[in-house]
Nucleic acid binder design. Structure first.
Lengths: 338, 338
DNA sequence: TTTTTCATCGAAAACGTTTTCGAAAAGCAG
DNA sequence: CTGCTTTTCGAAAACGTTTTCGATGAAAAA
């Protein structure tokens, strides 16, 4: 059975292509009875309009792109879930692109997105990205972009983030209250927006709290596994190793657990750990992991809704919302008293 | 700066649209010097060909669809990673669709895929799916489909799976060897291909092993969280509760851990647990979780490569490969002696 | 009756590519 | 200089929609 198109329907019904097209989109120009005839045959022949022809003619693709550093990651995969739910509700399709934390990949992806393949872009920067030229160029073509989590500071671009500064502050405070005298801050890269804010929260907590402040100890580990393990092992092997670790992303906490196993360090006895994390098994770890948990699903939902508002009424160009959702600190065993 | 298209390039260069088009795709018909002129201007004006026009004309979209039950799932997100890597290498785009374990959603998605939006489909069935009509119809339109993990038995459809029967057998055997006299088998649904094979392995292991066989105890929990917790709680509250649990998917093991916490049951003392799982923190759980781990990334990679072979040489219709990768059983604390 | 309006449809021009086919020019052999 | 091939390009027809605009006939208003 070859594909059925408008022409075929038209011939079969003794109508013009134009009439069939209008009937299918329920135009007022077409008589009710004709519409029904058209719909019936369309159903019978299982007609599916060619999305590429339609997209070309209407110059919109009903498609959005999601550009993220990685997918095998609890945070991003849940965000994507939220995005998909909204997109599906709007009848939009979702193309996902992974940068794998590579700036070069990000450039290439963004460059490609100039083609008009998508009507909008949802994006979280890769850890290497320190320059926003490519994103500014994309934005200048009129492409609606919404950033989430790892955002780019670009004028008139909506963002969805969490209260990273406050969370960083509270996490550090939490460690201090649990008697950590020295606290290390772990991150992948110093470039990302989230790192800057979380680290600033960490620094300010160390400064402002009257209890004898641990010294500022920030470690940027890079994003590949070997380097992370090495950096943490080095940190924890020093004779004056920190008493607490604040991991700015989940994989650093996981690595810390593994290193502690290797070095026979007890959590929370020898080392207390808290981490940004969306691990669903945080409470089942040994010991259970204290986390700052971001509302990942809502981030995806809100970012996607923001994007659709941008897509639908481009006129409202003055709109530049910055949505900040709240993360929640959940204290568990890894920061508990011995 | 308005978008640049072939017409604009042609006018600027005093060439025809045809020539510019052919120059950009490096046709032999075009003089080297002309090609260079065209490429230079295209670069300068940042020309990006309109993918929809191109797709319509060439009748191929350079796009594949991935249809999976959920994305916030360690297994599927890693599979997707593998898929993306291959797709990107081939210059293809990836549309993802989530069925959220709903048959209705699956039907709608598959129906839409008849439109020609994609050149091929990678798919894992939702747990409700017991009937393959919609998939057969899609296949009959000539759409290349490759199933992975939860496959549909449809003639001439390549599949990528793991050795589910053997793994089910080995997992059960492992529990028996660790002195479980009664073993419950947990699954989401009895419809899926993986469930049938894993459960059959379980049943045969119970039958074939001479040591006093535990009785066959299969529980199908459904796929929503409340139901799962309830079913497991009911199972473990019975006075003759099983001594071992074989969870056919990760979320059932997680739920089991939570229920055990609630009921004050000790793992592995009161209950031993093994599960199919791609949890990266399995070794860090309390207790560490014995797993059958599937090579998720490779499944994605292989499935995608199979799909591209289907897409590229449709002629080879006789090809109907069934790739079976090996899972690995990793014994950890949850099945250990007390 | 004549003129206007209204309801219903169709012809045709887009949308931006790719590809076929023929034309022109240039080179070469005779 | 003639006939032939080769090189290089352009005209035009697709691909399947959507949309504008005009045509037609019938009903309503004059």
């Amino acid at each position: 059975m070859e594909k059925t198109d408008l022409k075929k329907l038209a011939k079969e019904l003794n109508l013009s292509i134009a009439t069939v097209s209008k009937a299918l989109r329920d135009s007022w120009e077409i008589k009710a009875e004709t519409k029904q005839r058209v719909r019936d045959l369309a159903d019978k022949l299982n007609y599916q309009p060619n999305p590429y022809a339609s997209s070309m003619r209407k110059r919109k693709s009903q498609t959005i792109a999601v550009v993220i550093p990685e997918i095998a990651n609890n945070f991003f995969s849940v965000v994507l879930d939220g995005i998909q739910v909204i997109a599906e509700k709007k009848g939009f399709h979702v193309l996902t692109y992974l940068t794998h934390e590579s700036y070069t990949n990000e450039i290439a992806t963004i460059r490609h997105l100039q083609s008009g393949r998508v009507d909008g872009v949802l994006m979280s920067l890769c850890s290497e990205t320190a320059d926003y030229q490519h994103l500014v160029r994309l934005k200048e073509t009129g492409m609606p972009i919404v950033f989430f989590d790892r955002i780019a500071e670009i004028p008139d671009c909506p963002t969805v983030t969490t209260d990273d500064y406050e969370s960083g502050y509270r996490a550090t405070e939490h460690l201090l209250q649990n008697h950590c005298k020295t606290i290390a801050y772990l991150s992948l890269s110093q470039h990302t927006s989230i790192n800057r804010k979380r680290q600033q929260g960490y620094i300010d907590a160390l400064k402002n709290i009257p209890a004898k402040p641990g010294k500022n100890l920030a470690v940027h580990c890079g994003d590949e596994n070997g380097g992370i393990m090495l950096a943490i092992k080095k940190l924890l092997s020093k004779k004056n190793r920190p008493e607490g670790i604040f991991a700015s992303v989940e994989k650093l906490a996981i690595a810390t657990y593994h290193v502690c196993n290797e070095l026979k360090l007890k959590i929370p006895g020898d080392l207390k750990v808290i981490s940004f994390s969306n691990l669903r098994t945080a409470s089942l770890l040994n010991p259970s992991l204290s986390t700052i948990t971001q509302p990942a699903f809502d981030i995806g939902r809100e970012a996607c809704e923001l994007l659709f508002r941008k897509i639908e009424k481009k006129s409202n160009n003055y709109m530049s919302e910055h949505l900040v959702l709240k993360s929640s600190l959940i204290a568990r065993g890894s920061t508990g008293r011995i």
